[in-house]
């Protein structure tokens, strides 16, 4: 769902970029107060894993693919603050080194895939986890794809490309399907990542 340059208007990129910068500044403040230095190796390998997993496009419908975002997976394991920083870093590396997602649109992509995805998904997870952990993970991961697709649709509409009534059903419709893949992969690896994190914390 990485948006290329040339599609979003400059004001849309500027506003989403400014909000992203504000959230990231607060996330860094939170990390400086809470993130223990011995967790940093786990942070590094988790980010590396998210980068790798994002390369794996899976077929969704004929002629369309999707890949893991991983913001909700990271947020469940490390909390939404650290997750937003990790996702913003992965998105920046993808844009700067691999030409995946625009440079001017980077702030919008961070807003959608690091901020909206991580915080919306984590909110749902935190509300539902005490009822049923697996359902909470699956719904949160699914929403972590659908919510940024709504945000991307609004940004495309605000940029004057297409009216929201046309772009929203198309973009969000396909991401409601891609979100199932996100839920399946997240369910598969979330327990493993939690276990690695827990064991690493004892072994310092």
């Amino acid at each position: 769902m990485h948006i290329a340059d040339g599609i979003l208007s400059v004001p849309t990129c500027a506003v989403t970029g400014a909000i992203s910068a504000g959230v990231l500044a607060y996330s860094i403040k939170k990390s400086k107060a809470n993130l223990e230095e011995k967790q940093v190796p786990f942070l590094g390998v988790t980010a590396a894993f998210i980068f790798a997993a994002q390369m794996i496009n899976f077929p969704v419908l004929p002629g369309t693919s999707g890949h893991l975002i991983g913001a909700v997976l990271t947020a469940i394991v490390l909390g939404p603050w650290a997750a937003s920083i990790i996702m913003a870093t992965v998105l920046s590396i993808q844009a700067l080194f691999f030409g995946d997602g625009g440079i001017i649109a980077l702030g919008a992509n961070i807003f959608n895939l690091a901020v909206i995805s991580a915080f919306c998904g984590y909110f749902v997870y935190s509300k539902l986890k005490n009822h049923n952990e697996k359902t909470a993970v699956a719904l949160a991961a699914w929403l972590g794809v659908v919510a940024p697709s709504i945000a991307a649709s609004i940004e495309i509409a605000l940029s004057g490309i297409l009216p929201l009534a046309q772009i929203l059903p198309a973009v969000t419709g396909i991401h409601m399907v891609i979100g199932i893949g996100e839920a399946v992969i997240t369910l598969m690896v979330v327990g493993y990542l939690k276990k690695v994190k827990k064991e690493a914390a004892f072994d310092v």
């Binding site: 769902m1 990485h2 948006i3 390369m55 794996i56 496009n57 899976f58 077929p59 969704v60 002629g63 369309t64 693919s65 999707g66 890949h67 697709s149 991307a152 772009i167 198309a170 973009v171 396909i174 991401h175 399907v177 891609i178």
Partner: peptide, 11 residues
Amino acid sequence: AASSPDGLEKV
């Protein structure tokens, strides 16, 4: 990995 366009690209 699948080489078809992703959801947003397809739209």
